[in-house]
Design a protein around this nucleic acid. Structure first.
Lengths: 133, 133
DNA sequence: CGGCCTTTGACAACCGTTCTCAACAAGCGT
DNA sequence: ACGCTTGTTGAGAACGGTTGTCAAAGGCCG
């Protein structure tokens, strides 16, 4: 139960802190390998899972179903505008949207409401480099 | 290129029409088998894929990553309130939300914007049967 | 330092989905 | 109705992300 601070966990957290954008577990694993920090893939998955449970990282699903992780600045509930090419992320919140969501759901007799509100797009940088093809 | 109307495709469409709720490809496959309509799993996947491309069905991802399909009443853009236990679905639209989403994204210099707005909950029926455990 | 007990890592197992490819059948022309 | 052409089917293999297994490694508390 006690969360031990191991070299591997520290490495995962550090990598997330530096990256700042949404990354897949495999990308993270690759990054760690590249910088010499040898960490097993399964361990990366477990670390991310634990962090997500503790709300230390946000998780969202890419369009192809892969899970992406990010260490967000704010721990409160919020949403994201994510570049589908490079993972670049902007945190956003929509107080209006929150209210709207729970009102609609309640009106239909639904409980335990959760909502998924994510915005995907192509950021300015990726649009520029795509033009240079 | 021409879309041929085969027994299998017809069966998939019919099953979707009757079900009315979001179902996974495997559930659909199981349903068809159960009613004697022998259809290969791969074929179900292909049929759903084709229907999705033609905007004949809506696709969304369950929390565990599985794809769910549904034949919606309206073909225009809309969102869903889905019971995470039985797939029961209510179509909803949020004109305010749409506007908000594209405005926010544009303000950050993002292009090709797409948004995912889905509501998950437990419907009244499932809540009731859960109480009977 | 010693030992308990969590964590690790290589690899196998899983599971949803897609691919392969020979057999099959829609739909068209005759 | 009869071929023919060509898209479609289906069983099984392949795939890719993720999770499980289990012996070895190593935090952490006394």
């Amino acid at each position: 139960m006690a969360a031990r601070m191991t070299r591997q966990r520290t490495a995962v957290v550090e990598a997330l802190d530096e990256l700042a954008d949404f990354r897949s577990a495999q990308q993270l694993h690759e990054t760690l390998r590249a910088r010499g920090e040898s960490v097993g893939l399964a361990t990366v998955y477990r670390a991310l899972q634990a962090l997500a449970e503790a709300s230390e990282v946000d998780v969202l699903r890419a369009e192809d179903g892969e899970s992406l992780y990010r260490r967000c600045a704010r721990r409160e509930h919020h949403h994201h505008l994510v570049c589908r090419h490079c993972g670049r992320t902007v945190e956003i919140d929509g107080p209006t949207v929150e209210a709207w969501a729970s009102k609609v759901a309640a009106a239909q007799g639904f409980d335990d409401i959760e909502h998924t509100i994510e915005l995907w797009g192509t950021c300015a940088d990726c649009r520029a480099s795509a033009a240079t093809k």
